[in-house]
């Protein structure tokens, strides 16, 4: 049996559908439940429902063989896991945004006095370092858009799908850092000792992806 760590919510439904199409019946995921571990015996899968940011940790420690997690969270977590597949959904961009009124047009306009609020401090710091900007990165856990509004930060680094939340909060994207989609990741040892099972699941999902595109 393969153990898969997944985050609850909208993206789980997308993954469940892909699994169904790949021949892994997992209708157990559709039921409303408060359970954190859900078995789909006919598919030979066990789902571990985790917080998105915990998925890479579960997988790194081998508490789960596989995990489904956004590339943004995966990059931020800096965990040693194997990245097997781009699942294509959950697409979003990670951007640097500033208040429209600030008159800042590009990241190089930010200086050493600048403060940047982000849920992704590792990615943000690495990005600014690579651009030679010595900005101070302030880690936050939510409502990043608030940063500039309440005067906590001059800019934010966050993900956006459509850009609507940014516009509603008077923020203007000035740089793209990366694009993110959901990824299938694996524990490095599981990939070795359960190679056949994982390989079968991966090729099943690959076929589904090929049909979709």
């Amino acid at each position: 049996m393969l153990r898969i760590a997944v985050a609850k919510g909208r993206l789980l439904a997308a993954f469940a559908e892909m699994l169904e199409n790949a021949g892994y019946p997992c209708d157990v995921l559709e039921k409303e439940t408060r359970k954190l571990v859900i078995d789909a015996p006919s598919a030979g899968l066990r789902f571990i429902l985790a917080k998105p940011t915990d998925v890479p940790t579960y997988v790194e420690y081998g508490a789960a063989d596989l995990g489904v997690v956004g590339k943004d969270t995966l990059t931020e977590a800096q965990k040693h896991v194997a990245e097997l597949l781009d699942l294509g959904y959950g697409r979003c961009r990670m951007i640097v945004a500033v208040p429209e009124a600030a008159g800042i047009e590009q990241v190089t306009d930010l200086d050493f006095n600048s403060r940047v609020a982000s849920k992704y401090p590792n990615i943000a710091s690495a990005y600014f370092r690579s651009h030679g900007i010595q900005a101070e990165v302030i880690p936050l856990n939510g409502s990043i858009e608030l940063g500039p509004i309440i005067g906590l930060s001059d800019a934010i680094v966050d993900i956006t799908e459509t850009g609507r939340t940014l516009i509603e909060n008077g923020l203007l994207p000035i740089a793209d850092i990366m694009e993110s989609t959901s990824r299938l990741v694996a524990n490095r040892v599981s990939l070795k000792v359960q190679r056949a099972e994982i390989g079968r699941l991966v090729s099943g999902l690959q076929e589904v992806l090929a049909c979709e595109s």
Partner: peptide, 11 residues
Amino acid sequence: FEGCAPQMGSM
């Protein structure tokens, strides 16, 4: 080469 065991997530 690397050696690993199923119960352990690392090498």
